[in-house]
């Protein structure tokens, strides 16, 4: 079995793709940190059981 050679496009756009990947990764980390901050803050309340049922 042979692998297809990598298209030159991937090599040419490597920097751009790595950059986009890093930004998306940073965004995920930021949303995670934001969520953690919100749910651990004093004024956060879980919805009550009857509200969930409705």
């Amino acid at each position: 079995m042979t692998f297809r050679p990598e298209h030159e496009l991937h090599a040419r756009r490597k920097g751009r793709n790595i950059g986009v990947g890093l930004m998306l990764g940073a965004f995920v980390v930021l949303v995670l940190a934001l969520t953690f901050t919100k749910v651990t803050s004093g004024d956060f309340e879980l919805p009550k059981a009857e509200e969930i049922a409705n």
């Binding site: 298209h7 496009l9 040419r12 756009r13 920097g15 751009r16 950059g19 986009v20």
Partner: peptide
């Protein structure tokens, strides 16, 4: 469809 012809500028980040 998604390649840039040789010699043309590839938009950078």
């Amino acid at each position: 469809s998604y390649t840039t012809p040789a010699g043309e500028y590839d938009t950078q980040l």
